[in-house]
């Protein structure tokens, strides 16, 4: 794993990708800082400047991950990784960590901004540190999506575009969720669709009709049981679930200085899930 991490990290600086990412990110962060804090004489770094940067790295993360697996497939170096005496998930983890490390390093450079500000005003350090942690975790989650997408295709351009699209969608969930129907009925339908989807997914991976039927039945039973016990659960269920899934809505806890364990676990398991998906995708090639 360490070997892959080192190699990927080095590759960022052998190829122009690392410099482009760092340069662009720091340039825009600098502009935001100068306009948002210096010219407007504001002390509000965490909520103003840092939160404003989310959009920038929504756009920049695809740059970081687009070549991470596509190049292996294009140059046929994948076979080297697949025949190496290490499990696939470690290879994927190494690649993910390399991208996260570069991203984290870039983020660390921007710490200079609040330090500069601290000479001229009173900084709320817990808030700023919290924001940085949140920012980093959010970036990791986006990176894990990017790594997964790059394992799906052997073209860098399509990997970048699809990643951008997915990351934008997760970012937009916050706006979309507000427009979802709020009634009990819609909640019930949503639960049923979810159960059906789960059943189909089980069928797709196991090709076993009985097991997937049982999963579907269990889903229906749970929905029915909750309907009898506590109807309130279904009120605006769609909005609630979308918000729970939203990567960014959780992020806004961090600039408030709230470091919740559940948020931390959410982000880490999000990354873990996508790393798992990626290694399954790679493993699948052995069986094609």
């Amino acid at each position: 794993m360490l070997a892959v991490l080192k190699k990927e990290f080095k590759t960022y600086f052998i190829t122009p990708v690392g410099y482009i990412f760092m340069g662009l990110f720091l340039l825009i962060a600098g502009i935001t800082f100068v306009t948002g804090n210096v010219f407007s004489m504001s002390e509000d770094y965490a909520n103003g400047t840092l939160s404003g940067l989310i959009l920038v790295f929504v756009l920049a993360i695809p740059l970081l991950t687009m070549r991470i697996y596509t190049e292996e497939q294009r140059q046929k170096t994948e076979q080297l990784l697949m025949t190496a005496p290490i499990p696939t998930w470690q290879v994927v983890l190494g690649k993910f960590l390399a991208a996260s490390l570069l991203f984290g390093m870039t983020l660390l450079v921007t710490v200079i901004f609040p330090i500069l500000l601290s000479f001229h005003g009173r900084m709320e350090w817990p808030v700023i540190i919290g924001s940085y942690i949140g920012f980093f975790l959010l970036g990791c989650a986006f990176t894990s999506i990017g790594v997964f997408v790059s394992s799906l295709t052997d073209s860098q351009a399509s990997a970048a575009i699809i990643t951008l699209f997915l990351v934008l969608i997760t970012w937009m969930i916050d706006f979309i969720s507000g427009y979802m129907p709020q009634s009990n009925l819609s909640g019930i339908i949503f639960a049923l669709v979810l159960a059906l989807f789960l059943g189909l997914m089980v069928y797709n991976s196991s090709r076993n009709l009985t097991v997937s039927g049982l999963v579907l039945l269990a889903g229906l039973l749970v929905t029915g049981a909750i309907l009898l016990i506590n109807k309130e659960v279904f009120t605006s269920l769609i909005t609630k679930s979308l918000n729970w899934f939203s990567l960014t809505s959780r992020f806004y806890n961090f600039p408030r200085g709230i470091l919740k364990l559940s948020d931390l676990v959410y982000y880490l398991s999000f990354c873990g899930f996508f790393i798992y998906l990626t290694s399954r995708k790679i493993e699948k090639k052995r069986w094609s």
């Binding site: 892959v4 080192k6 140059q75 170096t77 080297l80 990784l81 190496a84 290490i86």
Partner: peptide, 21 residues
């Protein structure tokens, strides 16, 4: 041959060695 074109020969062999533990 699974070669990383952007590496030098020594860098590449070192990486393969590390990869093979």
């Amino acid at each position: 041959p699974p070669l990383y074109f952007e590496m030098t020969v020594t860098e590449y062999l070192k990486f393969v060695g590390e990869l093979k533990r």
